[in-house]
């Protein structure tokens, strides 16, 4: 149990997917302009990441490794993730429209989100067990959400500030992300 807690903390804070592992930065900048979008995106990532983590682990353990096809990992993972996301999207749209209204629009964004693919690959690289995969995927996703929501909050405030013209928009956003990342830097060595 203690191991899992350690793993979760490590995934959320120490190895924060956005700010320490540099994964998923396109949506990080793209969907952090407004708090509501950020929250929606964060929820969607948690949802998809856990599912993708599990399903790619299964694919890897029971198919790729068994037949010695590890070199097909990249292509099979992306296919599986893309299919999964699209399936979930269609399923939600039909069956749980309320949830779809909140998360649906973020789902396609996730297909090409390197955070998802990245976490799946990390899970395999670290040779996690099934339970560890669930825990770490969840942890990384929460870390993603945490960073995204924090960042959205900061960006909403920055809009109020007088930023020199050349620094405006993406530029200042990146510098802010750097400072935010610096705060997460403090967690290094905690686990």
């Amino acid at each position: 149990m203690g191991d899992y807690i350690l793993l979760v903390i490590s995934c959320i804070l120490v190895n924060n997917i956005l700010l320490a592992q540099y994964l998923g930065n396109c949506p990080f900048l793209g969907t952090s302009k407004k708090m509501e979008t950020a929250v929606g995106m964060a929820m969607a990532v948690v949802f998809v990441l856990v599912m993708a983590g599990v399903i790619t682990w299964i694919a890897d353990t029971f198919f790729l490794k068994r037949f010695g096809l590890e070199y097909l990992r990249t292509i099979s993972f992306i296919l599986v993730i893309a299919a999964l996301v699209q399936f979930v999207e269609m399923f939600l749209k039909k069956s749980i429209p309320a949830l779809y209204a909140g998360l649906g629009i973020f789902l396609p964004l996730i297909t090409t989100n390197c955070a998802v693919m990245g976490v799946c690959l990390i899970n395999i690289k670290e040779e996690y067990t099934f339970m560890q995969v669930i825990v770490s995927s969840f942890g990384y996703a929460v870390g993603f959400g945490l960073a995204l929501i924090l960042f959205a909050g900061v960006r909403e405030r920055i809009l109020l500030a007088r930023v020199p013209k050349p620094l405006q928009d993406t530029s200042i956003a990146l510098v802010t992300a750097g400072i935010l990342s610096l705060t997460f830097y403090a967690f290094k060595g905690m686990v």
Partner: peptide
Amino acid sequence: EAPGAFICLGL
């Protein structure tokens, strides 16, 4: 490190 990457790209 990560923070430097963001700040450097921003600048």
